[in-house]
Design a protein around this nucleic acid. Structure first.
Length: 431
RNA sequence: GCGGCCAUAGUGAAGUGGUUAUCACGGCAGUUUGUGGCACUGCAGUGGUGGGUUCAAUUCCCGCUGGCCGCCCCA
């Protein structure tokens, strides 16, 4: 009684060996796709000066005002307040500026992967420590960059075998046209204020764009008659968005326009998008979220540089793979286990072990005095595909029994042919 | 941050204010010292945590911790 029981902290979890193949598969596919599209991997710190988030994401956003983890230590001066990163973009921008990447050949394409931290109330697909793959393109203001970014995410999800995906896209304009639109929107809503829920009365002041996606029936009625951002874009923003959509059409990427799509981070301009798994009818599972942020580099102290990016929520991606019944390829475990009886066989076994290991076969050999039965049992238990069996008789004749533990069939081979034989069989298995 | 539901072997579940708390799967061992999986037999393992009510709490009540659902928001 009274034994101390430790649990994971709220919103964190262990990823156990049984789950790792999903993560390995995602990592491999994402890496291959992104490197193949000209992105370079960058590794960024897990904590930074909190100011980059406050300034970049916006002090009034939920992420900054309610969800940041701040760090405390005994020796830090008060001059720099550190925070665990709640997302990757601000850090990537800081790195772009600090490392003078504006003098590299533009555009600069980067991707990164790792844990992010937000102090939220956990739910399914929502954690306090969660993993993302993040992608950013700096220095390209054309619709090509928007397209490339969306396409790369689409491609990763497709290569992983996901179905029922759709891109929701919207444009939220630029500092020229958005204020005008918001003024127009507020003007429209002003006469309807009495019909709105209390949340929306608040949104009217704090974040008018959010008025559009309220789920209350009464608010939705009002929202239907509201002017849309898309109808009020300036010419440049309109052209940019149209071109982006044309690229998506060209590449057969399924999308819907969603005029209510508004990202919760202040830095977004123009294109915003999500990629959603629609197979779960109950509610939408957003796997990818991103958009353009043309003002952020300058805001954080760099030269004015256009940029666009997104992040993939990996636990949501793993969840979608499981729900859609996608099995990741098996990782290579023990392929061959050597079983032996007697001293002479043991000596030979060591040589066989070296030969097989040199041929890049995953081989397991721990000498044993047990009988063949327990040895074969433990070989099966560690998941070996084949057993190499060397008894006293075989040791004398320079022979080896190769047993297929899946089919329970076995054949005798000369010891010098064994590596070749196993290699051939393993290659066949993979097809 | 707000509201609701929940917590029993490793996993999934059942049940009870009162001797050894149940079942399935899983684990381990044996039947079987030159051939594993099947079968049979046996073994081990459980009330998240702190407090309250009570003669007695796994059961009733409260706090904490954690999970899930809705809101907010988001990957």
């Amino acid at each position: 009684m009274g034994k101390q029981v430790y649990q994971t902290a709220r919103g964190t979890k262990d990823i156990l060996p049984a789950e790792q193949p999903y993560w390995a598969q995602i990592k491999q596919v994402a890496e291959k796709t992104l490197l193949g599209l000209g992105f370079g991997r960058i590794t960024l710190p897990h904590f930074e000066d909190a100011d980059i988030y406050t300034k970049g994401i916006g002090a009034d956003t939920d992420i900054v005002s309610k969800e940041m983890f701040y760090l405390k230590s005994h020796t830090d001066s008060d001059s720099v307040k550190l925070a665990l990163r709640p997302e990757g973009t601000a850090g990537a921008v800081r790195s772009y500026i600090q490392n003078g990447m504006s003098s590299l050949s533009q555009p600069v394409r980067l991707y990164y992967t790792g844990a992010m931290f937000r102090h939220e109330r956990p739910q399914k697909g929502r954690f306090r420590e969660f993993y993302q793959v993040g992608v950013e393109i700096f220095g390209d203001d054309s619709a090509k960059a928007d397209y490339l970014v969306i396409m790369s995410a689409w491609e990763i999800l497709n290569r992983l075998g996901l179905k029922n995906l759709i891109v929701y896209a919207n444009s939220i304009g630029c500092p020229k046209c958005r204020p005008k639109y918001i003024a127009k929107l507020k003007k429209y809503y002003k006469s309807h204020l009495d019909n709105l829920c209390t949340d929306c009365q608040n949104r009217y002041e704090v974040n008018p764009l959010r008025l559009l996606d309220c789920k209350e029936d009464s608010c939705q009625k009002v929202a239907k008659g509201a002017p849309t951002m898309l109808d009020n874009l300036c010419t440049d923003c309109k052209t940019h968005f149209q071109q982006t959509l044309e690229y998506l059409d060209y590449f057969n990427i399924r999308y819907d326009l969603d005029p209510t799509l508004v990202r919760g981070l202040d830095y977004y301009t123009r294109t915003v998008f999500e990629i959603v798994d629609k197979s779960d009818k109950g509610r939408k599972n957003t796997i990818v979220g991103g958009g353009r942020y043309d003002g952020l580099v300058e805001l954080l102290g760099g030269h004015s540089t256009p940029a666009v990016g997104y992040s993939i929520g990996l636990e949501r991606l793993v969840g979608a793979m499981k729900e859609q019944g996608i099995k990741p390829p098996k990782t290579r475990g023990v392929e061959v286990c050597i079983l032996q009886l007697g001293d002479k066989a043991r000596e030979i076994s060591k040589k066989i072990y070296d030969t097989l290991a040199k041929s890049d076969i995953n081989v397991y050999f721990v000498p044993s005095n047990d009988g063949i039965r327990p040895q074969i049992k433990s070989a099966a238990k560690i998941g070996a595909t084949y057993a190499v069996i060397i008894g006293q008789k075989e040791a004398l004749n320079d022979e080896i029994i190769l047993r297929d533990l899946t089919s329970s069939s076995q054949e005798v081979f000369s010891s010098k042919d064994i590596a070749e034989e196993i290699k051939n069989r393993l290659i066949k298995c993979e097809c």
